[in-house]
Design a protein around this nucleic acid. Structure first.
Length: 283
DNA sequence: ATCCATTCCTGTACGC
DNA sequence: TGCGTACAGGAATGGA
């Protein structure tokens, strides 16, 4: 379940194989994703040099020299696997391999997405910022412009729980269910606090912790979550364990509350998603 | 304008 | 063993 660090890792993994290369083969094997893969639009990318790759929120943007940009979202289970010429004997296509890309260096790149929540589209680069999914996005959490005052402004009038709020892409992008729980734990904020009632001091701490956890995860190459694969086809190598995520009933890694007394790390459901937290550390 | 539940989808884990 | 069911969740949607 890729969040910002995983998307960043995938983008960085694709970069050496795509930047400066051209696509000479495109096979849409199974078009059905969140929106159908636009095979005809993809064709205009054939034989055109790739200028650069970047990440915006959880989207990977691949810019081509003809002023077209390929936009990819990995959804829940999307992955790219890169096969250099020597590895292509290993390719075993399955029914969830939606797109096979071949570059002029004879590298094959396969997009697989079993749960089909991903998305692939092509837009004019100069119209990219008005492309609906990108247009509504809030600030990049790792940008220096993402500050406590920006977060505060984006939370004004918001009565939803802070956990739900920081997963809202209009408030801040890239924070998914896992890092939302982790960042709130590190900041000592209860996930159920009403968003516009979090104190300025705690908001500043939250901004710091969001940046910290995302950077740490990027540094470790993405998380080890069940559906995540890097472009070499391996699971992540995110070595540190999560503090609270998926650790219901375990002891809080920080405080000395006894499990017998407190029940340890709690799990609650907010907006249909699991939230994990320590009732003692987070107020 | 904001909020909330629902929808999409399928592999995995679990209980009986 | 096998079957059924609940669950995982990013983002869009529609109704309140």
């Amino acid at each position: 379940m890729p969040e910002l660090p995983e998307v960043e890792t995938v983008m960085k993994g694709l970069q050496p194989f795509l930047s400066g290369a051209e696509i000479i083969g495109l096979e849409v094997r199974s078009p059905q994703l969140r929106i159908p893969i636009p095979a005809r639009k993809l064709k205009v990318l054939m034989g055109v040099p790739i200028v650069k790759l970047e990440r915006r929120a959880k989207y990977i943007l691949i810019h081509f020299a003809n002023e077209k940009t390929m936009i990819v979202h990995l959804g829940m289970t999307g992955s790219f696997t890169v096969y250099p010429p020597k590895k292509q004997a290993d390719i075993l296509l399955d029914r969830h391999d939606h797109l096979v890309i071949t570059t002029d260096k004879n590298v094959k790149i396969i997009y697989r997405d079993p749960r089909r929540f991903g998305m692939i589209d092509v837009v004019d680069t100069d119209k990219m910022s008005s492309y609906k999914p990108l247009q509504i996005l809030g600030p990049e959490p790792l940008d220096k412009n993402f500050t406590a005052s920006v977060l505060k402004a984006n939370l004004s009038n918001r009565k939803i729980a802070i956990k739900v709020a920081i997963m809202d892409q209009k408030v801040v992008v890239g924070v998914g269910n896992i890092y939302a729980s982790e960042a709130l734990f590190l900041a000592g904020i209860s996930p159920t606090t009403q968003a516009n009632e979090v104190t300025d001091q705690k908001l500043a701490l939250l901004v710091d912790k969001i940046k910290f956890i995302l950077k740490a995860a990027i540094k470790s190459g993405g998380s080890t979550l069940r559906d995540y694969r890097n472009v070499g086809g391996e699971g992540g190598y995110f070595q540190f364990k999560f503090s609270v995520y998926d650790r219901e009933g375990e002891a809080c890694p920080v405080c000395d509350c006894s499990i017998e007394k407190t029940g340890g790390i709690r799990r609650i459901v907010q907006a249909g998603r699991s939230t994990f937290f320590c009732k003692t550390c987070q107020t």
